[in-house]
Computed example of a mutant assay.
Amino acid sequence: MIPNRMGTEIGSTAEHALYAMLDGVETRWACPENRTGAKGSAAIAGGGRKGSPFLPIASGETVVLAEEQGISGIVRRIWITLNDRSPRMLRSLRIDMYWDGSEQAAVSAPLGDFFGTGLGLVTPFQAALFSSPEGRSFNCAVPMPFRTGMKITVTNEGDEALRMFFYDVDYTIGDRHAADALYFHAHFRREYPTTQRRDYEILPKLQGRGRFLGTNIGVNPDTSRYGLSWWGEGECKIYLDGDDEYPSLCSTGTEDYIGTGWEQGTFSNLYQGCHVADKTSMSFCFYRYHVPDPVYFQRDIKVTMQQIGYWDPQTRDKFMESGVRVMEAREERIIDFAADAPESIPDYGVFEREDDWSSCAYFYLDSPASNLPELADVKLRVAGLDVR
């Protein structure tokens, strides 16, 4: 066996050679021109002349994008584009994925956030697992093995109908999996706002054995309270296999976690990037994929990020002008920039914040179901998105 690029053994050695045939493995594409992906059933509508290139999805409607029963396989690529790519629509569309007949979805997330488009802000980027060429479409290249079947659905939980939904789900059937092949999962969260000194949970405590694959994160800071000050001094903390008060893994700052430093601008690399860095609103969307640096867990895992901001002399002066009152992060003392004596306030400091954070975490697990809570109601997912 040779590990695939996720480090998980999925099939035989031959699978990883471009020139090799895999015995008993067949290719399927499910799309509006062939909803079932069945052999000899594509491009039939309209006399075979582009008769069904997209689907409409009414408000409240669920559509099945791809489904197989009684056979093994691997979902290898998903591509989607749609005519309404507004933040509200991307948060209202819900994508769910089920493996091996499980009634609980392994993937349950807003469409945009699942494909790495944080805050519903579509922008061009390219990474190893997700991409959006020209900011017009959504691509996923994460391998998703199944043993006895799979189902992928999209539900429109918004108030507006979607007129045009284009998609491809590209997969193979008949793949033979190693005994320790894991199931792909994704989990979306949002806190609006976060709570001071309570770390934001990218991945709540998860039971089982598997691999944390990474996350994308969107931050809408409270500029009415903190102005345009830097919000990203918080550290990423990963609790592994019984860790209690303190984690086993920790970054040195939010931007440090995604591989840059001294705040962050826009960039997109294979395994880390920041594809939205709006300095006029301080809204940011960024990602980190643990592909070359695997994060394994044997019993349980929890992944969090601190909400800590920073002031320097320039920010200190602005805080004094606006009368900001904050909690200092290390000593927990309250600093009132309007009332405290100026000489008692240092030129540099870190403080606790309350902002709007959202994320989609990706992981592999040894079960097609998890102990994580269900996806939040659409009203919570879209609240405040139009106020920027």
Rank of each mutant, 00 (worst) to 15 (best):
N4W: 05
V350R: 14
K318G: 07
D180M: 04
Q104V: 12
T223L: 00
D300F: 06
A369G: 08
C31N: 13
Y257A: 09
K151M: 07
P294H: 05
Q126N: 02
E61Q: 15
S283W: 03
E352T: 15
L82F: 09
D312W: 07
R209S: 10
A42Q: 13
Q196V: 09
S92A: 15
M320H: 09
R316L: 06
M320D: 02
F54P: 01
R299Y: 05
R299N: 13
L18P: 12
E103V: 11
G214W: 03
T153F: 03
P3L: 03
V326N: 03
S224L: 13
L213V: 14
S41V: 12
T315F: 01
I202Q: 01
M282T: 15
A339E: 08
R197T: 15
G227M: 05
K237F: 02
V378W: 09
Y192E: 01
P32W: 01
I10G: 03
G242R: 13
N83K: 07
D159W: 01
K379Y: 08
E67N: 00
A38W: 09
A179V: 11
G135C: 08
A38Y: 06
E354G: 11
F351S: 04
Q264G: 15
E374F: 04
I238R: 00
G208R: 07
R176I: 15
R330I: 10
A106H: 06
I238K: 00
A127V: 08
L203Y: 12
A128N: 04
V382R: 00
F319V: 09
E157K: 12
W357T: 11
Y364T: 11
A30R: 07
E157Y: 09
A127I: 08
N156T: 08
A181Q: 08
A43V: 14
F337N: 08
L365T: 02
A58R: 15
L372Q: 08
T215H: 04
L119P: 05
N4P: 09
D100R: 11
L203Q: 12
C250T: 15
G120L: 01
A341F: 13
S108D: 12
D386T: 15
E263P: 03
A106K: 03
P313A: 04
A179G: 06
G120K: 00
I217F: 10
P133S: 05
T148R: 10
F188T: 12
E191C: 08
I78R: 01
A186M: 11
D256C: 12
R136W: 02
L203M: 13
L65A: 09
G214T: 11
S132G: 04
T252S: 11
S12Q: 13
D300S: 15
D340P: 13
G48W: 03
W311A: 04
C274L: 00
G135P: 02
S59P: 12
G112A: 00
S248I: 02
W311L: 05
G24P: 14
A105N: 13
V295C: 01
R88G: 07
L90H: 03
G70I: 09
R49I: 14
A38E: 11
Q264M: 14
T123A: 03
N156D: 07
F125M: 00
I301R: 08
D355G: 03
S370A: 04
C236D: 02
G120M: 02
G253C: 04
S367L: 01
P3M: 00
R325D: 01
T123C: 00
E61L: 09
